[in-house]
Nucleic acid binder design. Structure first.
Lengths: 124, 124
DNA sequence: TATTGTTATACTCTATAACTATA
DNA sequence: TATAGTTATAGAGTATAACAATA
């Protein structure tokens, strides 16, 4: 509480479970209500309450009251949560980059084209 | 217990969880010990005990004693388990076939090539 | 002693039902 | 009444530790 705030992040575990990562990624787009988070992740409201609680306890997200509707709360990323998401993505990208970089240019093109096709199929 | 045995299968739920499907698929290759199943699925031995119990309860697999090593047991598919696995795969293939069949010949080629590349990357 | 498998126990994520507060 | 969120409770998956039986 008195010195190197970055040490805290680097010393703590960066691990987040898949369902937590999904919430962080959503909140990186914009703040959301628990209802919106639950619908997007296709889990029940109580499950999302639990997930959000865990992220709040870790200081990665924060709850604030909706100023216009007293029933709702707004969940948003903290600076720490945003930084953690960024770190995780950087690490994942690095992991994949190494493997893709070993492929030939033609192979990389095939993967790029396949990604486009699969994205279209998945959205049907 | 007196007539249409197939009715039983068609009336019962075909749903199997992913970790159960993995075990059925392994056993379709050949019978295995719980130890082998656990190692392959990368779960602990007690978890595999539980999974096998569930499959035994549903009549999809059976335990038999190893004749040469009294410590080991052998888990194998029942006829019902083999048939269920076959049905699930047929349904999955049908689902994917419909989507792939809507693609052009070129797009299908791209996916085939990508699958080969990704399989190689994944096995590195 | 080492190995195989199970039982005991606990933690996490999931769900549905019931409850509170607000619209 | 309907909606948003939480709490209560239970089910299914995971794990580690401890145990029994056998090699």
């Amino acid at each position: 509480m008195h010195a190197h705030p970055r040490r805290v992040r680097f010393e703590s575990s960066d691990a987040v479970a898949p369902h937590q990562f999904g919430v962080l990624a959503q909140l990186n787009e914009s703040p959301r209500t628990p209802r919106e988070l639950a619908d997007h992740e296709r889990v029940s409201a109580p499950s999302m309450t639990r997930t959000v609680n865990g992220l709040v306890d870790r200081g990665l997200v924060a709850r604030t009251d909706d100023p216009t509707d007293g029933r709702q709360v707004i969940v948003s990323l903290t600076g720490e949560g945003r930084q953690l998401l960024k770190d995780i993505r950087r690490r994942r990208d690095a992991w994949m980059s190494v493997r893709v970089s070993r492929l030939s240019r033609e192979e990389q093109d095939v993967l790029r084209q396949a990604a486009v096709i699969l994205a279209r199929v998945a959205s049907e």
